[in-house]
Design a protein around this nucleic acid. Structure first.
Lengths: 251, 251
DNA sequence: GCTCCGCATTGATTTATATCAAGGGGTCAT
DNA sequence: ATGACCCCTTGATATAAATCAATGCGGAGC
């Protein structure tokens, strides 16, 4: 069955079906990502307002839920899983501009169209807010707007770091930077392993490299004793300091 | 005289001297960049509050006025001229993350240190605001915070485009994209020429290329009849559509 | 069980761009 | 005027990473 979707990452032709019912206040009150998300800007006493504007959505792996260039109707807040954000060229070349994990807010768009696409890497849980309801919330809770500005500023810093990486770092430096970033953001499992939810192809599209170069670079790092590459997507960092100096080009 | 500054772009060892006196209300009221800047969020009746918090600063070409990693004490608003924003690696490799022209707001930083450096490309006029005074202004004028969020969102979109450029575009596509961006933002002179205030080196550091590749690519475009390279920094776009399809990789 | 297919790894070769190198044309201070 | 210094351009060569190609592994479906 051919893929007729405009989204390069879409793997299933079916439309994403999303519910429309709001949530109970307790849902937000108990939410484990609230402390680290923009939702923390709303106090417990007002949390019902937030909850009733939100719709919980589950996105299966590989499913695209924001398509670049489509009307920007919704904002999203990731509550679990990992999302890849990307831009594409007409001939299919792609650049992943970031990975968004729990607590991350998506959908900031100045124009009325999304400037990027978003696809679930693994199973992703989202809270969805329509733009209109979000607008009302922002009018009523200016603290939320401030929190959103903080979030945007953080992303801007990350984007600047990524521009330095893409414009000036070597393949080894890129991969080292990536592993350290992932180790800082995602938590390690009981064996100190870093679980990467994304494929080598995703990493390549994030780092501006090819799959082969990412694979070769990881093999080289393993040969150097810097990392251990386990089964599946698990990686153990064995020489963090060496990776850090490599990431900053001090080798 | 050796350059002992930590700023890679600093050319003069003297410290930047900046005044401390606030401005008259009329200064902001008459300001020609107010409509396109965050300052437009403050109405005429309150503009005195903005003016008294601002200090006008003139920065000579090549002068660095924000140093990466230094304490983030001030915000800036560019009123004339062009600023380059950059990040650097310890060995001197640099990435210019953007050029900021009139109306552009600088200094958004989450931590208490600047995440990037800023240097005047040509003679630059700035309004400077201390973080504390800016904080008070934002508390008193929530519209300004909203305006700042818009600005940050715009920058985020630009950053995503730049990541696509740096990660996935060829040298020709990069230069074509750059020329079109510049033509869109800066206005053309009476002869339809685009005046680029920055050097080939700056363009190279912005596009993740070398000076030689930028120069060769411009020469190639001229040989193709796409552009005319005039004296100094003037460029005429002769075949906009060809440049546009080139910029999007449709060639 | 087997087959298929996507993902990853590794090797051989190519190529776009960097690096090295030389020279020209401004501008500024002496 | 002269020389020093930038910045730019162009040519020759080197190289990091892409591309082309082959193989292996592991899960899903039959």
């Amino acid at each position: 069955m051919p893929d007729t979707s405009s989204c390069q990452f879409e793997q299933r032709p079916r439309r994403l079906v999303m519910g429309t019912a709001g949530l109970q206040a307790d849902f937000c009150k108990m939410c484990n990502v609230r402390p680290s998300s923009v939702c923390s800007a709303i106090e417990n006493e007002d949390i019902g307002r937030l909850a009733e504007a939100a719709v919980e959505t589950i996105v299966t792996p590989g499913r695209c839920f924001i398509e670049e260039g489509e009307p920007a109707t919704d904002f999203f807040n990731v509550t679990s899983g990992t999302v890849k954000l990307f831009k594409a060229l007409p001939d299919g070349r792609r650049q992943i501009t970031g990975f968004a994990g729990p607590g991350h807010f998506l959908g900031l768009a100045v124009s009325d169209r999304y400037a990027f696409g978003a696809e679930a890497v693994d199973t992703v849980r989202l809270c969805r807010f329509s733009r209109e309801r979000m607008r009302v919330l922002l009018d009523d809770f200016p603290r939320m707007e401030r929190r959103l500005l903080e979030e945007a500023s953080n992303e801007l810093v990350a984007a600047q770091n990524q521009m330095l990486l893409l414009g000036r770092k070597t393949a080894r430096e890129r991969v080292a930077s990536f592993l350290l970033d992932q180790a800082n953001h995602g938590e390690l499992n009981s064996e100190g392993q870093l679980h990467l939810p994304m494929t080598r192809g995703d990493i390549a599209d994030y780092l501006g490299l090819t799959i082969e170069t990412v694979s070769r670079t990881l093999s080289w790092m393993r040969a150097q004793g810097m990392i251990d590459v386990g089964k599946g997507y698990a990686i153990t960092i064995l020489a963090q300091e060496r990776l850090e100096s490599l990431a900053e080009g001090e080798d």
